[in-house]
Design a protein around this nucleic acid. Structure first.
Lengths: 351, 351
DNA sequence: GTGAAAGCGCTAACAA
DNA sequence: TTGTTAGCGCTTTCAC
């Protein structure tokens, strides 16, 4: 009689299976995978062989339920459409995967309510830690963070006196540094194409820093010389057009980031405005793409903490994963780009 | 005697808790959250109230263990440093979160072995579906996909006859279209700055398409006119330098993507080469940043399936989440950028 | 319509 | 060093 071979219905291989195969208890099989040193060489070897033979993969969900740890970190970022967040999220991912953690990503698209929802979803999913962007969050978000006592880190901005785990740089100071640079070049009428500051404390702080620097110099940042635009080429284009349409246009324009600056440079080119002879333009960030600026923008170094892992190292430390964390990663540099500055000129800007 | 109020050690609120509070069984409480229609209005209301009152959040891990579904999708992409992958991952995330799914992201940095590792990690974590980039994968990866029968989708490339779930466009045809465009303009000596084709079937197919178009026209793509460089400005810069250093340089250069094209344009500008009079340059993709090209590139529409959700819709359908999937999302357009073409000229390129 | 009880696959005391 | 025994918090038959 011919034997009928059924393709067995691909049942999941469990610890019980390999335990049985290896002739040990389930507990021992479990230990073989998590605490190998606690086992005798021979049993360890037997379990390993069985597990390899049967193609066993540990059931992470079950393990998570038993241990309370998912080895998963959640990051809620504004958007992946902005290269700066994409790149920093990538660096975070690299750091985490090194340490055996997986990264959940959610984007709130500059909506604080969406951010709260994402945090809640993460929490429900039992993540071990959470990364947020910026200092300003919905009260509900903060409450969730505090009540659940989940390890977390706020990124991309710091302010003196902040009592929470933060990583990044002081956007306010950075804004100030740029403004002071322009003042030193002799500019007295300075404008700014800021990012949208609503729900974005980084953008707001950069603006605040610029404003403060001018005040400290006995000058003002008049409201007609401040516009807020999205971080896009068109944002820069439209921003420049607006500022140049003022009665008394500025002699220097501080842009909220490099993309805006590139858009502004493009528009200036179209309008036949010579940069930097007739107008100074500064960028922000260190996007490689900024090299396309014409003329190229000059740079100033500005210290930034842990941009290389985007908070990953801080988080891992909080999770007790200290041993394999190289300390050297803890400090890197952000570059603030600026156009070489000319003294301000009367100019044909008002045309 | 004064009562001493202990801050209770923040034990997790479980279903048992709200069941007790609502005076029902755990099973009923569970139903209230997942099958509300199966309950009487009054009990449903009671459970809901209790759960709100105690601030209950369902334990996703436990639910996942019980149901076998995590409501999590894993995406393994090459890198978040390339804007094109960042943006498509963002669109995937948006689509998934709409449907109540979370997105795990891993980057393999163009290493097929790393990709396999990531897939395995995802599988262990019990993800419900998986998104990969490209058609070419390690045999081990394919085996995992097939053996576990996990719903998956391959993105960013399609080829006729492929029997797997794919989403994207035909890179080979796209390459051909570009080459034919240049041939039509009269070019006979065409070069290419391709992306790194190792582990990247999209880059390889674009190159293959160009090669085929030339062959079909009775021409060749000589090996000295093909260079492979990373998708970066410098890649374009160096690529152009190399191609122009050939004995007989090309009259047109096809770039593997927009960033390379921008780098090439920048280098051409520095070398005082007039584009497109002396040299044609074409890009690929539709990066907004490509607007910075000087001269601006013209565009040709090329059909791409589901770029708007990057496979998310396909995956959700496989997962049975059909009801809320708008069919209109299923087809969008990719734009292939090309420089306006001049007839080829003798030129000063050989200088 | 609701409850009791049996798991999902794993880890972690506690014993031996 | 290894095994036994309880769970982790939820869903899901199967009775009632």
């Amino acid at each position: 009689m011919a034997k009928i071979t059924h393709t067995n219905p691909r049942r999941r291989i469990t610890l019980d299976d390999i335990a049985r195969k290896a002739g040990v208890s389930k507990a021992t099989a479990s230990r073989a995978l998590t605490l190998p040193d606690k086992l005798s060489k021979s049993t360890l070897e037997r379990v390993r062989r069985a597990s390899k033979l049967m193609g066993y993969v540990s059931h992470g969900v079950a393990r998570a339920l038993a241990t309370g740890k998912t080895h998963t970190i959640g990051a809620v970022i504004p958007t992946l459409d902005n290269a700066i967040y994409a790149v920093s999220t990538g660096s975070l991912e690299r750091r985490l995967e090194q340490a055996g953690y997986l990264l959940l990503v959610a984007c709130h698209e500059f909506n604080l309510h969406t951010e709260t929802k994402a945090v809640r979803a993460f929490l429900g999913r039992g993540i071990d830690g959470i990364v947020l962007v910026g200092l300003a969050h919905a009260p509900e978000t903060i409450r969730l963070l505090d009540e659940t006592r989940i390890p977390y880190v706020l990124t991309w901005n710091i302010r003196p006196g902040i009592r929470r785990p933060v990583v990044g740089f002081n956007n306010r100071n950075a804004g100030r540094v740029i403004a002071e640079h322009l003042l030193r070049l002799g500019h007295r009428r300075i404008g700014m194409i800021a990012g949208i500051t609503k729900f974005n404390d980084r953008a707001a702080d950069r603006l605040a820093g610029v404003r403060q620097a001018l005040l400290d110099a006995g000058l003002r940042l008049p409201s007609e010389l401040v516009v807020e635009h999205p971080y896009s080429l068109d944002g820069g284009t439209e921003g420049l057009a607006l500022l140049l349409s003022r009665q008394r246009p500025p002699t220097a324009i501080i842009c909220g980031n490099d993309i805006i600056a590139l858009g502004a440079l493009r528009e200036a080119h179209i309008r036949n405005i010579n940069i930097p002879r007739e107008l100074s333009v500064t960028g922000f960030d260190d996007m490689p793409i900024a090299e396309l600026g014409n003329p190229p923008l000059t740079t100033v170094h500005f210290p930034m903490v842990e941009v290389g892992t985007h908070g990953g190292t801080t988080l891992l430390r909080a999770l007790g994963e200290t041993e394999d964390i190289p300390k050297t990663e803890l400090s890197l540099r952000l570059v603030v780009r600026k156009s070489t500055g000319p003294p301000p000129s009367r100019s044909k800007l008002t045309r």
